[in-house]
Nucleic acid binder design. Structure first.
Length: 431
RNA sequence: GUGGCUGUAGCUCAAUAGGUAGAGCACAGGAUUGUGAUUCCUGGUGUCGUGGGUUCGAUUCCCAUCAGCCACCCCA
């Protein structure tokens, strides 16, 4: 192969896509500030052991999807496949996660999973993680859902996402149920398909969610999770539903909603869409009350949620959302060496005089026609014209590009004042 | 990891029952010796994804490989 290509599944996000990303990122930042969640930044690489102990040894992620390698000292390191483990590790390591204390954090960044690339699925992808520690819920469970629901509202995506919730019960009741299920499906092993036999070892709860219609009778006769649910989890779940109803959040209970990571318990939820092909989950999360202790911290309840940024961006494009357009105030058109010399200086002076000014100075020469074409395509509101005549008379010509109007000729000494009032710029206009 | 489809100019695509390729858009210059649309004229580029095989000759046929897409699986 003579030309270099990006590594499979690791995509470039080009300038033309950034307006959608910026729209999402700004909305998120505003929301986190509004709800009182603090940002943290975490390493992309962690010890492999961390993911094995948190996500679970027999999950797909740990068994076959991690980018792991040996460090120079022989220790196994891994490119993070998800964010919660590193967040919990950091919280414990710095003594932040303590009983009787609440913390609400968020972070974002690249995650890595060696899966087959597909629409909405990449080997390097970006997640926003939201975590809350030290709170039993279900009030904080609802807050997390409300925060994400508000994000959809802000982005105009409410109509294309639906909320599903479920409970997995306490770790104990979940494990008891799991054993019950394994026993049941083992007794009917001959009626399972190949995938489900494999799931029997790995994640038996997922058999319940099989897409194979042949399995429907076996699945319907299987023991139900709700029958094994402990009393406290039952109460937690019904309070959660009452609170959601009280604040007008619509949802469906999906008894088959199971998370792929081992550490979840009690509340799990998922925002799904039918606009992105098979990759339906846009954001998903749940409680992980046992994880902090499991990783060596004190027992502290926690809940978290992850949002797939590529998927949200894809949704924004899918529904034809308006990208966040960058404003351009002025495009400077120049003809000749004298104009270039004068123009570069004038432009710098205006940048000093007019805070917030967004000005493109023509580079690379070109005829007036070409320069005006560039000015037009830049979406600038005004063209500043500097040719031989203007340089001789020490003036600039200002031409409105977005609306009808006469050209103005302004002396260099007055130009920044005139521009400032024409543009109506104040120091705080940062659109 | 499994299966199906695809891969030609910067982008979207066409063509050649095997004889080394075109169009639109975009870009540059001009008609308009200093003014954005439209129109018209002019201009260039392709290792036809990569490697190998068959053939006098392969972009076309065969094999492999890489990548993309779609689904399974899994998940954000």
């Amino acid at each position: 192969m003579s030309t270099l290509q990006a590594v499979r599944g690791m995509h470039d996000i080009l300038p033309e896509h950034m307006p959608y990303w910026s729209k999402l990122e700004r909305a998120l930042c505003d929301l986190f500030a509004a709800y009182g969640y603090s940002e943290m930044r975490l390493p992309i690489v962690e010890k492999t052991e961390l993911f094995k102990r948190s996500i679970g040894e027999v999950t797909d992620i740990v068994e076959k999807e991690m980018y792991s390698f040996d460090d120079r000292n022989g220790e196994s390191l891994t490119l993070r496949p998800e964010g919660t483990a590193g967040c919990v590790r950091a919280g414990i390591e710095h003594g932040l996660i303590q009983p009787q204390q609440a913390h609400k954090w968020w972070y974002s960044g690249a995650m890595f999973r060696h899966e087959r690339p597909q629409k909405g699925r990449y080997r390097q992808f970006h997640q926003v993680g939201i975590e809350a520690f030290g709170l039993e819920g279900p009030d904080v469970d609802v807050e997390l859902i409300l925060l994400t629901r508000r994000l959809w509202q802000v982005l105009g995506l409410s109509a294309v996402v639906q909320l599903e919730i479920n409970t997995l019960g306490s770790s104990e009741s979940r494990h008891a149920y799991r054993a019950l299920l394994v026993e049941y499906f083992n007794a009917h092993r001959d009626r399972l398909d190949e995938d489900s036999v494999r799931r029997l070892e790995r994640n038996p709860l997922r058999i319940l969610d099989s897409k194979n219609p042949d399995l429907k009778p076996v699945i319907e006769a299987a023991p139900r999770l709700y029958d094994s649910l402990d009393e406290a989890s039952r109460t937690h779940f019904s309070q959660l539903q009452e609170l959601l109803q009280a604040v007008g959040v619509s949802f469906t209970v999906n008894p088959h909603l199971v998370r792929g990571l081992d550490y979840y318990n009690r509340t799990v939820f998922e925002w799904k869409t039918d606009r992105l092909g098979a990759q339906a989950a846009v954001a998903a999360g749940g409680r992980y009350d046992g994880l902090v202790a499991q990783l060596g911290g004190k027992p502290v309840p926690a809940i978290g949620c992850a949002l797939g940024m590529e998927r949200v961006v894809a949704l924004l494009q899918e529904i034809g959302a308006a990208p966040l357009a960058e404003r351009v105030d002025v495009y400077m058109v120049m003809a000749g060496d004298a104009a270039l010399r004068a123009g570069l200086g004038l432009a710098e002076q205006w940048r000093d005089d007019i805070p917030g000014l967004r000005m493109l100075v023509n580079t690379g020469g070109g005829s007036f026609k070409a320069q005006f074409r560039r000015a037009d395509r830049s979406a600038a509101r005004w063209a500043v014209i500097l040719g031989d005549d203007e340089v001789r008379e020490q003036v600039v010509t200002l031409k409105p590009l977005r609306e009808q109007g006469e050209q103005l000729r302004v002396a260099w000494a007055d130009a920044s004042g005139t521009l400032k009032s024409l543009l109506g710029l104040t120091t705080s206009s940062m659109t």
